[in-house]
């Protein structure tokens, strides 16, 4: 039957090897009924944007615990725009200090989750903010 399914990509940009959170999220998204593409660690923003377009995902979730989010997250948004894919929602999480939030929002990151964020709060955000494509 025709039904617009939601696809999500979970990606880890940069040299950060903390993948526990990303894996837990990938599993939680699957269990919530989404199709999840996990890219693994050590991805360049270029690889992430390119994979997101090939996979035609609705949402890219970036996870970064190394402190390099300030460059990496906005770069992914920028590249998606260059590829004509700025309708893909980008959110992020990891070790991100409060004072960085506004800059990331301004760069087009739609929401940020930090340690302690419950899986339910993340899933709720997706349910409330992500609409199936036009």
């Amino acid at each position: 039957m025709a039904e617009k399914r939601i696809r999500i990509m979970v990606a880890k940009p940069g040299l950060d090897g903390h993948d526990r959170g990303a894996r837990i999220l990938a599993r939680a998204f699957r269990d919530a009924g989404y199709e999840v593409i996990y890219t693994g660690c050590h991805q360049t923003p270029e690889q992430i944007a390119s994979a997101a377009v090939q996979e035609d995902v609705d949402l890219v979730g970036l996870s970064c615990l190394s402190g390099a989010h300030g460059y990496l997250f906005p770069r992914v948004v920028e590249l998606l725009k260059e590829k004509g894919a700025d309708d893909i929602t980008v959110i992020g999480g990891g070790i991100i200090p409060d004072q960085d939030f506004q800059k990331l929002y301004d760069a087009g990151i739609k929401e940020i989750f930090t340690p302690g964020a419950t899986l339910d709060s993340i899933l709720d955000w997706i349910k409330n903010n992500l609409k199936p494509r036009d």
Binding site: D31, E35, V36, Y38, T39, Q43, Q47
Partner: peptide
């Protein structure tokens, strides 16, 4: 759940930027 983790791609990500490859 009807959900899925599509993990094959992890092994092929080095080709992500090659315009001659579509995964």
């Amino acid at each position: 759940t009807g959900g899925a983790i599509l993990g094959d791609r992890i092994r092929m990500q080095r080709h992500a930027e090659d315009a001659g490859v579509f995964v």
